[in-house]
Write a protein that binds this DNA or RNA. Structure first.
Lengths: 162, 162
DNA sequence: CTGTTATCAACAACCATTGTCGAACAACAA
DNA sequence: TTGTTGTTCGACAATGGTTGTTGATAACAG
């Protein structure tokens, strides 16, 4: 996404006000590679603006998304993540803790093979590599995780109910 | 996933009972290419078992997931989907209506380039092609959708609040 | 047949996210 | 420096998807 200064101009052009809260969020997101959730942004923002509200964070995040300044990612980790990097890239997702890392790689030949479109008008392709991050592969030799995606919400197999 | 008959055996082996409800869900899922949500399974199940509960559907679906008989997919469409096809394949996702279609294609060279693992122990790669299905591309020439993923929950830009 | 387990119904709780409302306030153009 | 207007806050309710709970009933499996 663009720099806080540029965003200031863009907001003004749209007739939107540039409040300290918004500027704070601009700064937090700028060059941020951590794909923070709304709640993560909120936590950081509170450090310098203790009275900022979660509602305002969501509001501004959505404003930025509607302007196309951040990408909204739902990688199945339970909450939506915001990515200020607008360039084409893919993701590594930890099935343990939900961490997301960028993967700047190109995969030539990554398009729907002819005749398999099934009526779809296909836009972008995103690749998600799922696995365990360094911390989680150390911490847990058990719990290899669900085979596919999943937000870690699989019922804890609590048989014997009732 | 395996046939209803095989699943019956597998459940018994685990000391689980094979109830009509479970068998019903086995049948609904078997060779089902629609990636149904739990609610979709529930709707079909009720057609032949009007008294089945949503709770039981979730329960059985999670049982099957924990056995590795179905894949749990969170494609950012708002609810989790269940895929009985355990083979390697990818997906087409409609950003309009959330429909999911299988894409049986192989993408050779789809692995994390050396040195870009960032500490991850990478397992599978899933490719999501986002676009519009035939129905949605006819129905909506407006609303091209959010650039990235997103469950269509972006706030409806209702300015002038307060 | 009998003991164990699954299911039901009905409800509450959870989480991420959005809506709402009034009051206070601050950005910014005049 | 003002006034207008948009923004924020706080506090709470509501949504939708999913899971927990409970007691009673029903059904599987040995």
């Amino acid at each position: 996404m663009r720099s806080p200064e540029e965003l200031t101009t863009l907001f003004r052009d749209r007739g939107w006000k540039v409040t300290p809260q918004r500027q704070c969020i601009f700064r937090i997101l700028h060059d941020n590679p951590t794909h923070p959730t709304a709640d993560a942004v909120y936590a950081v923002a509170r450090a310098e603006m203790p009275t900022i509200s979660l509602r305002t964070v969501y509001q501004t995040l959505n404003d930025l998304a509607s302007m196309g300044e951040v990408n909204v990612l739902d990688l199945g980790t339970g909450s939506v993540r915001f990515d200020p990097d607008r360039g084409a890239h893919h993701h590594l997702v930890c099935t343990g803790c939900g961490a997301v890392r960028d993967l700047f790689a190109e995969f030539p030949g990554l398009r729907v093979p002819d005749g398999m479109e099934q009526g779809f008008t296909v836009g972008d392709a995103e690749v998600v590599f799922r696995g365990l991050c360094d911390e989680c592969s150390v911490a847990g030799s058990a719990r290899t995780g669900t085979t596919g995606a999943g937000r870690g919400k699989i019922e804890s197999d609590s048989r014997k109910r009732g």
